[in-house]
Nucleic acid binder design. Sequence first.
DNA 1: TGCTGGCACTCGAACGCACCGAGTGCCAGG
DNA 2: CCTGGCACTCGGTGCGTTCGAGTGCCAGCA
Lengths: 338, 338
Amino acid sequence: MLSERRLEVLRAIVQDYVGTEEPVGSKALTERHRLGVSPATVRNDMAVLEDEGFIAQPHTSAGRIPTDKGYRLFVDKLAGVKPLSSPERRAIQNFMDGAVDLDDVVGRTVRLLAQLTRQVAVVQYPSLTRSTVRHVELLALAPARLMLVLITDTGRVEQRMIDCPAPFGEASLADLRARLNSRVVGRRFADVPQLVQELPESFDSEDRGTVSTVLSTLLETLVEETEERLMIGGTSNLTRFGHDFPVMIRPVLEALEEQVVLLKLLGEATDSGMTVRIGHENAHEGLNSTSVVAVGYGSGDEAVAKLGVVGPTRMDYPGTMGAVRAVARYVGQILAES
Amino acid sequence: MLSERRLEVLRAIVQDYVGTEEPVGSKALTERHRLGVSPATVRNDMAVLEDEGFIAQPHTSAGRIPTDKGYRLFVDKLAGVKPLSSPERRAIQNFMDGAVDLDDVVGRTVRLLAQLTRQVAVVQYPSLTRSTVRHVELLALAPARLMLVLITDTGRVEQRMIDCPAPFGEASLADLRARLNSRVVGRRFADVPQLVQELPESFDSEDRGTVSTVLSTLLETLVEETEERLMIGGTSNLTRFGHDFPVMIRPVLEALEEQVVLLKLLGEATDSGMTVRIGHENAHEGLNSTSVVAVGYGSGDEAVAKLGVVGPTRMDYPGTMGAVRAVARYVGQILAES
DNA sequence: TGCTGGCACTCGAACGCACCGAGTGCCAGG
DNA sequence: CCTGGCACTCGGTGCGTTCGAGTGCCAGCA
C-alpha cells in the first residue's frame, strides 16, 4: 500500500509534468512543493512508485514521468473535478447563446469545448434510438415520389427520398401521415418498429405496397442513423501535443477521421457519469498516447448522446473534466428548452 | 523571354522537386531527364530562371526549388490536367455508389477526394441561393409552434423552429403552405424574398402576424444559410507536409478550422473552370505555403457549390487537378440524378 | 553566340569528442 | 524511517573537422 506521502509525491509529479512537459526530478519537486522532506526521501518514494509502475524514467539519468497507471491513480484518487471559473461559465453562455438549430448547437459546442480545454473536441449528435419522435412528415414531391422527414425531440431532422411502387393519392397520404403520427409521436425511436408493424394491413391493397415501402424506408433510416453522426474540432490543438511531433499526431489525426473509431470511443464511455480513458486503455492503437474524457448529455435525465475531448495523456485532468461536465450540462439545458 | 529549353528545365525542376522533396541540382537534373545538354549549361539556365524569380536556392550551396512564381508558370504553361486512370475512375464510382442523402454524398466526396489526392479535401454544401426550391413544408408541432422545412433540388434540407405570436389553425396552415409552395417551388432561392413579399396581406388580420413571422424566419434562414456549410477531411495527410513540421501545419490546421476562411478561399475560385491558388496568392497568411485547387460543381450547367483540396505548394498539380475535376463532375451527376 | 569541361569555392549535414549538470542509487549515520 | 553525502550515468550542448553536392566563373571550342 502506498503511504499518504507517496501519493502526495505522485500528485506533485503529475502536476509538475503536466505543467512543464519535462521529466521531474526529486530536487525540483521538493523545491516547488512543500513536502516537508528531503530530496533523498523523495527519491526513495519515487523508487517505490516506479516499482509499482506509477511512474517511469525515459532515460536512466532523467527525471520521472507518470505512466498511464500513474495518471489513472491520479484521476481516481488524487484529483477532483475542477469547477469552472465564473468568467468561464459566462463564456459558455455567451458562446452558446443564439444557436438556431441542432447543427448550430453541435457546431458551437465543439468550438466551445475545444477552446475551453485547448484540446480536440468531439460531440455526438443526439442519437435517434434514444430520442423520442416529435413528428413524422410525408411530403409528396411527385405523384410517385415521397420525402420522409423525421423530427426528434432534440431537434434533429432526418430525411429520405422514397420512390413508390405506385402513385399515391393525396388522401391516402394524409391518412398514412395521420395514422403514423398518432402511433409514434412521443414514443422512443427504438420502439417505432413494433408500433408500425401491422400498419400496412389496414390499407387498401393498391396502397399497401407504397405503405410498406414507406415503412421499410423509415425502419432503414432508423438503422442507418443509429450509426451516429458526430462533429469534431480543435484539431489544431494537436500541434501543442509534444516535441516528437509527426510520429505522435499522425495516428491521432487518422483515428479522428474514422467516425467508426470515434463512435466506439464515445460508446465505451459509461452512460452516466464521466469516463476517462487513459493512454493504452483506449482500444484503438493510434490513440495509445492520448486520453479521452467523455460524458453523456441529454435533454432530460437520460443521456441522448455523448461528448468529450481527446488530448495527450499529459493533460490537466481536473480542468478538462470540469469543462467537459459544464459544457455537457449546458447543452443538455439548451436541448431541453428547444 | 525564356527559351524552350529553359522552360523544359523549369518543368524538370518542378517534377523532381515534387517527387523527391529535395532541392534539385544541375547534375541530378541532367541525369534524370534527357535534356541533351551538360550540367554547366543547365546551371546557366538555372541562373537565368533564378534571376527571373522562378526558382530559388534555400542556401547558397544547395540545389534549386521552385518559387510560387515558378509553380504558377508550370501550372499555366507547362502542365496539363492529368486524366485519371481507369482504376481510379472505377474507384470513384464504387466509392460514391449508394449514397443515401446529401450529407452522405458530401461526406463520401470529402473522403474520396482526400484519398485520391492524399491531401486535405474541402467540399462545400450546395448553396441555397443558387439552388431552386423543391418544397417548403410547415409542420404544426404545437398550436403556436411551427417547424419550417426547406428542401432544395440538390437534396439539401434546412429546418427552423418558429414560435408564433398566436395559435394558427390547421386550415390557415394548409392555406399558407399551399400558397407558399405555389409561389416558390421551382424558383431560385435568391428570388424567394420578392416572391413572398405581399403574401401576408392576403390573410385575415388575426393570422397576419403569424404569417409574417413565418416569412421572416424563412428569409432569415436564407440569409443565415448563405454562410455556407462545408465539410473537410484528410487532415492527417498534412503530416506528410514536410520536415519542418509543427511550424508549417499549425497555421494550416487553424485556417481549416475557420469556416469563414475556407469559404472565402473557395469563394475566390472562379465560377467555372478550375482555379489554382499557389502559396502567397492565398490571402490568408496561414496558407502561404499551401496551394488550393478548387472547382465548382453542380447538378446542371451552373455551379451550385465548390470543392477542392488544400496541400503543400509542392504538390502534383496535374494529378491533383485531374482528381478534383473528375470528382466534381461525378458529384454533379449524382446530384442531377437525385 | 552558345555550349562545354574544368576548377576553385561555399556551406550545410554528419560525425566525433569533450564537457556539463540534472538526476539517480546506495549507504552510513542520526 | 529520514537525511546528507557521494560516486555514477547519460542525454544535451557546443565545437571543430570532414565530406560532398552544388555553385559561379572562365577559357576554349563549334
